[in-house]
């Protein structure tokens, strides 16, 4: 599995309130939530993002509320992967559980800039920055989490286990 797209770069502590503000949480539909994704820190995001694009951020991405609406909004906006130095723990769980690929990589988070063209190989965890001609090694998931990701999320994983 691979991802390939243009990077939208953000800073530290991007919280779930800016990923999807609570005023929209009366909706549960991913496509509807996606229309407001990131709007409180980047009004242009939803107009510019194309299918397959990548979000790169610094520390503690997804901190705050447990709302699964946040990774869902990102996924339904067409984002193929989020790379960060670290993720807040509930966001991390939620992303894996709903099948939104995420990778922790300090070097990628530091080096990649807004607008860079980036390719990700999820099997090897290698992140290739085509704009800069550099590669970074992302952290691989433990086998248990790979099982969930391969199944397509927690629910299909549980169904498979029976």
């Amino acid at each position: 599995m691979k991802a390939n797209g243009t990077v939208f770069k953000y800073g530290d502590n991007v919280d779930t309130d800016v990923i999807i503000p609570a005023r929209y949480l009366n909706a549960t539909d991913g496509a509807e939530l996606a229309k407001h994704c990131m709007e409180d820190i980047d009004k242009e995001f939803i107009h510019k993002v194309k299918n397959g694009d990548i979000i790169v951020a610094k520390k503690n991405f997804g901190c705050g509320s447990s709302r699964e609406h946040a990774p869902l909004a990102i996924k339904c906006a067409g984002v193929s992967c989020v790379i960060a130095e670290t993720f807040a723990r509930i966001f991390y769980r939620n992303a894996i559980n709903i099948g939104l690929p995420i990778i922790e990589c300090e070097e990628a988070s530091r080096r990649i800039e807004n607008g860079d063209q980036v390719e990700i190989d999820f099997d090897s965890g290698v992140i290739y920055n085509r704009t800069k001609g550099e590669s970074y090694q992302g952290q691989a998931f433990p086998p248990f989490m790979q099982g969930i990701i391969k199944a397509g999320g927690l629910i299909p994983y549980i169904n498979e286990k029976g």
């Binding site: 705050g64 509320s65 447990s66 709302r67 699964e68 990774p71 509930i90 769980r93 939620n94 559980n97 709903i98 999320g153 927690l154 629910i155 549980i158």
Partner: peptide
């Protein structure tokens, strides 16, 4: 399925916030 579920640690319980999919799995299993 609320991040402030960690509140009940005051009683000496382990409690933590999760998302809706974890909640669904927890309700069933």
């Amino acid at each position: 399925a609320d991040s402030h579920t960690c509140t009940y640690g005051a009683l000496g319980a382990f409690s933590t916030g999760v998302g809706s999919t974890d909640m669904a799995a927890g309700m069933v299993t």
